[in-house]
Amino acid sequence: MDDTTTDAALRREAGELTPPLYALARVLRLRGVDEAGLRPLPPSDLEVLRYVLESPGVGVGVLARELGLQISNVSTTVRGLVAAGLLRREPDPRDRRAVRLLPTTDAMHGMARIEQAWAEVFADSLATLDDEQRAALAAAVPALRALGARCAHSGTPGPGGESRPARPGLRGRAVRNALARPARSR
């Protein structure tokens, strides 16, 4: 199989995967907060909060870069989350000019309630699937985690500052062609 055939097969697989993954992500964005009995949060607030919960002590600059957001937008979101009692700022012990972001106990408890509500939403839906479908989904979890991690870091600078290609398995002309093509809307 040559690079062009491989590229076409990867695009076809991606085209089949993205709509159902997007639909699931939409369910998570729209459900959970209400079911958990919490005050609704805008998606950007929830995204910032989840990142800080996963990486306590992160700074605003790193947070903005990792989420692909403008620093000013992240700063505004952080101010709102601090005012809501979900995040707290703490001086960085290594650089007193910098601030580390930490989740509050309310944020940790609230996110646990949201994740429990998400699990209940998914459990209700999983109950309608047959055993084979549930086993296929369970078996896909490691691959989905790996895909999520690679998607999150594709196109980010490598150790030497060079940009990593989104598909490291492609080489030479195929990489240049894949990176030069505009994304098609579906």
Rank of each mutant, 00 (worst) to 15 (best):
G59K: 04
L81F: 05
D3Q: 15
T104Q: 02
Q133K: 08
A166H: 12
L38I: 01
L126R: 02
A178N: 02
T18L: 09
M1H: 13
M108L: 14
R29D: 15
T6D: 05
M111D: 10
G160I: 06
T128C: 02
G148Q: 13
Q70N: 00
R79F: 04
R100T: 11
R150F: 15
Y51G: 07
G57H: 03
G68E: 04
D34T: 03
V78C: 01
L30H: 08
R97S: 13
S72N: 06
R65Y: 10
E90C: 06
V141P: 03
T156F: 15
P182L: 08
T4N: 09
T104K: 01
A83R: 11
I114K: 02
L69G: 08
V62R: 05
H153R: 15
R176Y: 14
L46V: 11
R113E: 08
D130A: 05
L81H: 04
P19A: 13
P103A: 09
R113L: 04
P159R: 13
M111N: 05
E115D: 03
R100Q: 15
G148M: 12
Q70T: 10
Y22E: 12
A14S: 05
V99H: 08
A149Q: 14
P142Q: 15
G148K: 14
L101W: 07
L129F: 13
E54K: 09
M108T: 12
V33Y: 00
R184I: 09
T128R: 11
G80T: 01
V121Y: 01
D131F: 07
L46P: 09
E47A: 14
R184W: 03
R184C: 05
A36K: 01
G61H: 02
L46I: 13
M108Q: 14
L53W: 12
R94Y: 05
L126K: 00
T128V: 02
Y22R: 15
D92A: 10
N177S: 10
A9K: 13
M1W: 11
G61R: 05
A83S: 11
G172R: 03
A64E: 07
R167S: 08
S163I: 12
E54G: 09
G37E: 10
R88P: 08
G32C: 06
P42K: 11
I114P: 00
H109T: 07
R150E: 15
M1Q: 12
D131S: 10
A149M: 06
R96Q: 09
G158P: 08
L69N: 01
I114A: 03
V52M: 09
G57Y: 01
L129N: 01
E90P: 11
D7Q: 06
D2L: 12
T77C: 11
G169F: 08
V141H: 07
L126G: 02
F122D: 05
R150H: 15
E47V: 02
V58K: 00
P168V: 14
P40R: 10
A98M: 07
G148Y: 08
P165S: 13
G161W: 14
